[in-house]
Design a protein around this nucleic acid. Structure first.
Length: 938
RNA sequence: GCCCAGUUGGCGGAAUUGGUAGACGCGCUGGUCUCAAACACCAGUGAGAAAUCGUGCCGGUUCGACUCCGGCACUGGGUACCA
């Protein structure tokens, strides 16, 4: 029979089909769909509220459902946590593995401002898209517990927690939060104050409080930002400039928890880098407060120092420009200069200030302080290197032993006194806490440590100051002048803030005509209709809560998501406790992860929950970077293959592309990575990619166009975004899951390279073939042989070790080795293949379910029992010893493991090869390490 | 500047924590099948002709170092006048 081929194109297509039919026996498209539907219909991953099983809580960091959807980097952590959750189910745990959305946030609101579309609609659309993408990857989430922070049923409780914060104060004696009622009896003459005065006084104690605060004001976003939302002087989202501004704002008193937030880090299994970042952010420093009298004045300046030992090295005092004593101290001769400087400092934006940290600015006030020990005059300066928000907003400057004071002194030519020997003060300050004290009266001759003790003792004795601890951590500003957030459940009556009653919650987000501030600069909520008032007459608070409010307690809501009576029931927390394994990005180190710890401790203080930390173990997954591809354009529309850039073109080539000379300028242009395969450009796809390239001409190498490449952040503008949907479409969800894990250690950042995915795709087909012959299940019930059992149990052992150490990349390798070895042995024994299907199920759940079913099981593999490793199959009787000379392995020799060291030593020396390497010399020493190595020292 | 990671073939990475460096996979080369190609399968693949040399660089400890210690360089992330 003659096969007539109508066109080469069709032929290629039909042959592709043929190959699929012949080799791609495993139809992942059908099978993955089948099991995803099965899991959904049977609610396979539902966590039990009550169970005799031990519990295990695996949580992923709350995603914000952005409009761009997921790229291949997002699911990395979800896949890892999913593997762990599935593993724990196989190990007999009742697993809570939920997912939901942190759905309030800026992008939906910005989109609303531009288009007028209600952020709720945008958010719902984005969530639907997210869900669709997540479902394709086969995650084992318990979707019955989904929460969304923008649902009023959820934010009702976020508001409720805010009210608890408002109604509490931090009692330093019991070292925990208590209801505000326990404070009132401690306040003198409270009852004699007016209502307004009482309110103002209590606001100084409440954990949620209203005050005039220096805030990070972002004019472009029209809102204030928390410190951790500001990066390098611009807003983290959007990159807009930020300035300092004094505003009446709601804040949370997180600073009260600083010490506990710091200490409790020791008890949790988080990465060192996150703990370190939190320690730095909290920034505890122990020192002394010290008062300086001001000459010819009743005022005193209080400074904070960690180096009281250097008190005799003080040569001036510096105040922050905003310091309250500045006006009062400044002498009339210096008034003008000082005022100019204050104006200058105020108008300098945060960004400018940071950009030129090294630029030293300051001004003399004309006033002098009196040194508490020497009685000498000390000039008082103002400088913006001193921050009002830290310590007392004033420093005793010791230029000899503090590099910032040194720089200031050098710049303004102020005296530098050496009080600790060991440095060279003509070059730089000597900041080290080592050396003997000099020029220091009663401290002379002591080392720094002893001098510090002595100085503190004398300072306290003379009542000049006392020991003090400072934290860098600021209270968290809690109001945002935005629309798309939780309304703060507060109304104002005669200028006094009141919180709503619990039965008045939720205070739902009102409709507004526009999502912009009002003409008078009030937040968007001020646009709500005039009926949006408490009891029809009192204004509500117009600020909304920040993005991190809802995410500070969501791990609790998953335990009891439907509860209408409480944010979570006590029984639910008593059972689920806290998160056993939390996986997410390291970028939340000082934001979310600090706030969620704070709220957890607060809720614990009030007795609502039994835990003091949200998560026992935390793992940070690395970023997946993109690999960008480049084409090189010469002239207007000619593209030159990468390795031809520096080579001359032949006259023929020039003619072909219509160019006159060799030396046109080369431009590097990003090209969509989806039309590049192994650096080879798909030229036809490129011509169709954009209209302007339709008639592009090419200078090739070996008949191909080779692109350049570079590792960059994955982003739309760099054309290097790879979507998980496409990977699932082409290779299947199991392949994507395996490949993401196979790429490298979870915590490390690594570039995405689609090329390698064919490796795991082959592996899945090989696995399938182990169980099948001509696409029909072919499994034998014969007992397995010893070598087969050894392969299985070796693999079980390694997989358990790998999963428990979160080394998912090596477990994928181990599966490959296992399947390769079993294929080699042509093993198709049920005794081997059944346990294999179970251990691979957490990684590749779809194919595992299908194999499990074909093996005759009617229940999902999800709740099978993870096989035990039987060591007896792994014992060896002999070991092939590497024989090394001076540590270099030269050859191998097998010896019985029962053979004593001395005998091995003797045996080795008799070997012909040993004599060859000894070259007639006598060995100095022979080291035999049982089951490891033989080393001969020559 | 400070803090935290990291640096191993052409590429992603492995090494039971001091005991055979380069597992596993990609890519590449050769072969089988095919008129040919793709797919699949088989073999090879750190460098070097070899002796040997090889885990960012220099030094140390050790019978033996990718692994431990001291110093340095580079890359990535965080942070920033915190007294």
């Amino acid at each position: 029979m003659i096969l007539v081929i109508p066109s080469p194109n069709l032929y290629i297509r039909s042959s592709k089909f043929l190959n699929q039919y012949l080799y791609m026996e495993y139809n992942f498209r059908e099978i993955e769909k089948k099991w995803q539907e099965y899991w959904h219909d049977n609610r396979t991953f539902r966590a039990e509220d009550k169970s005799s099983k031990p519990k295990y809580y695996v949580l992923d960091m709350f995603p914000y459902p952005s409009g761009a959807g997921l790229h291949v980097g997002h699911p990395l952590g979800y896949i890892a946590s999913d593997i762990f959750a599935r593993y724990k189910r196989l190990k007999g745990f009742n697993v809570l593995h939920p997912m939901g959305y942190d759905s309030f946030g800026l992008p939906a609101e910005q989109y609303a401002i531009q288009t007028g579309q209600h952020p709720d609609i945008t958010t719902k659309t984005n969530i639907a898209r997210y869900r669709e993408q997540l479902d394709k990857i086969g995650f084992s989430f318990d979707w019955d517990r989904e929460v969304r922070t923008s649902d009023s049923a959820y934010y009702k409780w976020t508001q409720w927690i805010f009210i608890q914060l408002f109604n509490s104060w931090y009692n330093p004696e019991t070292n925990k939060a208590e209801p505000i009622d326990t404070l009132i009896p401690k306040l003198n003459n409270y009852s004699s104050l007016s209502e307004k005065e009482q309110s103002d006084l209590l606001l100084e104690y409440r954990l949620a409080y209203l005050s005039d605060t220096m805030v990070n004001w972002c004019p472009q976003l029209g809102t204030v930002l928390a410190n951790e939302e500001v990066k390098e002087g611009v807003s983290e989202r959007g990159g807009y400039p930020v300035e300092r501004k004094l505003m009446k704002q709601w804040s949370l008193r997180i600073k009260a928890y600083a010490e506990r937030l710091l200490n409790d880090l020791d008890g949790i299994d988080w990465t060192d880098s996150i703990k370190e970042a939190q320690r730095n952010w909290i920034g505890k420093s122990v020192g002394t407060s010290l008062k300086f009298k001001v000459e010819n004045s009743k005022s005193e300046i209080e400074v904070f120092t960690t180096r009281p030992d250097t008190i005799f090295g003080v040569s001036f005092v510096t105040l922050a420009p905003e310091h309250e004593l500045v006006q009062q101290l400044t002498t009339s001769e210096h008034k003008k200069e000082v005022e100019e400087y204050i104006t200058f400092a105020k108008n300098r934006s945060e960004r400018e200030r940071m950009a030129d940290v090294k630029k030293i600015t300051g001004v003399f006030t004309g006033a002098y302080a009196i040194h508490p020990f020497t009685g000498k005059q000390i000039p008082i300066w103002i400088g913006d290197y001193v921050l009002l928000g830290y310590g007392t907003g004033a420093v005793m400057a010791v230029p000899g032993h503090d590099s910032r004071d040194y720089a200031f002194a050098k710049h303004f030519d102020l005296p530098i006194i050496e009080v600790v020997a060991g440095g060279d003060l003509s070059k730089e300050s000597y900041d080290a806490k080592e050396g003997k004290l000099i020029n220091s009266d009663f401290l002379n001759g002591k080392d720094v440590k002893a001098a510090m003790k002595k100085a503190i003792a004398v300072i306290e004795e003379k009542e000049l100051g006392k020991g003090k601890t400072n934290y860098r951590l600021h209270d968290a500003i809690f109001g945002r002048q935005r629309y798309w957030g939780e309304p703060i459940p507060v109304y104002y009556k005669d200028g006094i803030p009141h919180v709503l009653n619990e039965n008045e919650l939720p205070l739902t987000l009102p409709e507004v005509d526009k999502y912009l501030p009002t003409e008078t600069g009030e937040p968007p909520l001020a646009r709500a209709s005039s009926s949006w008032k408490k009891d029809g007459k009192y204004d509500y608070e117009y600020s909304t809560m920040p993005g991190w409010a809802g995410s500070s307690w969501y791990f609790l809501r998953y335990m009891d998501p439907e509860n209408e009576k409480a944010f979570v029931s006590k029984e639910a927390v008593d059972y689920w406790q806290n998160v056993d394994l939390y996986i997410g990005g390291a970028e939340h180190a000082t934001g979310h992860l600090l706030y969620v710890r704070f709220w957890t401790k607060f809720l614990n203080d009030l007795g609502f929950i039994s835990v003091t930390e949200p998560a026992k173990k935390l793992i940070n997954q690395g970023m997946i970077q993109g690999v960008s591809s480049f084409v090189y354009r010469v002239g207007t529309n000619v593209f030159i293959s990468k390795n031809r850039i520096d080579t001359a073109f032949s006259a023929d080539e020039l003619k072909q592309v219509g160019m006159e000379s060799n030396d046109a300028h080369v431009t590097q242009i990003h090209v969509d990575v989806n039309i590049v395969n192994n650096n080879v450009l798909d030229i036809d796809a490129f011509k169709n990619w954009r209209e302007e390239y339709k008639n592009a001409k090419f200078i090739l190498e070996d008949g191909k166009y080779i692109c350049g490449s570079e590792v960059e952040k994955m982003s739309k503008s760099k054309w290097n975004v790879v979507s998980p949907d496409l990977m699932v479409e082409q290779y299947g969800a199991d392949a994507l899951r395996l490949y993401e894990m196979f790429l490298g250690p979870l915590e490390l950042s690594k570039p995405w390279n689609t090329n390698g995915i064919s490796g795991v795709s082959n592996f899945i087909r090989k696995l399938w073939r182990l169980y099948h012959k001509d696409d029909v299940l072919n499994v034998s019930n014969e007992p397995a042989t010893k070598p087969e059992l050894k392969i299985l149990h070796k693999t079980i052992k390694k997989i358990i070790h790998d999963i428990e150490n979160f080394s998912f990349n090596t477990s994928v390798s181990n599966f490959m080795i296992c399947v390769n070895e079993l294929t080699e042995l042509k093993c198709n024994k049920r005794e081997i293949l059944e346990p294999l299907a179970i251990i691979i199920a957490p990684y590749a759940p779809h194919i595992a379910e299908e194999l499990w079913q074909q093996l005759g099981h009617t229940e999902s593999v999800t709740y099978a029992a993870f096989p035990e490793c039987k060591e007896e199959y792994l014992v060896e009787s002999a070991f092939n010893y590497p024989i090394s000379f001076n540590g270099k392995t030269r050859f191998f020799q097998e010896y019985d493991l029962a053979l004593p060291k001395e005998d091995i030593e003797k045996e080795v020396l008799t070997l012909e090869q040993t004599q060859k390497y000894l070259e007639g010399k006598t060995p100095k020493k022979i080291i035999v390490v049982h089951n490891k190595i033989v080393n001969i020292v020559v």
